[in-house]
Amino acid sequence: MSWQKSLSSTIGRKIMMSLSGILLILFLAGHVSGNMTLLLGKADAFNAYAHFMSTNPAVQVIANVFKLFFVGHIFYAILLTRQNKKARGGEAYKVSNKDGSSVSKYMGVLGSVIGVFLVIHLSQYWAVMHEYAGTIGTTTVDGVQMKDLYSVVATSYQNPMIVGGYVVSMIILAYHLWHGFASAFQTLGINNKRYTPVISFVGKAYSIIVPLLFAAIPVAMFING
């Protein structure tokens, strides 16, 4: 089997889903830790973090690599979903089967909602930060002039629609991770008595804690006014 054929096989495609998924899980950890400056209400610290993330050359390289993982994860998801629907065939069961993990049956739907969230999220902050859309002021932190992303974020989180949409999206993300985290390891063949209990515990804890921390930020900023 050539490597192209290996990658386009069912398991090959699943491995691509798994690897890109694990890296996106790591991305979430990085993102949420930076956002903690917002939860602590430190405007200067957040602006300094945003400035570092948008100017540091190493971060730019990593950011572009992560864009590839996002695109890859979505690309392989579409390929697999098409293949799976074709395999299931045209005639549906009259009585459907209820066995197995129910979250896993809606990964595509959950992922699509996260995709929509991502587009809105990027247009609200990333596009503004890079001045592709909207306007952004400047601020000075420790003598360095930089863009005032904190004000953009703080203003948006006074809008209950944005806060509500954010919280709902994080709940969806939690469900996606609930299955995705442990599933990624199963796909890589890591399923054994020693590590699987640890992986599934960490996966479930991660899928609650990370979206919870993300969601806490707009809620806290909204409450604090």
Binding site: T10, I11, L80, N97, D99, G100, S104, M107, H179, T187
Partner: peptide, 8 residues
Amino acid sequence: GACTNTGA
């Protein structure tokens, strides 16, 4: 099809 690790 491919495996979604559903366990059904």
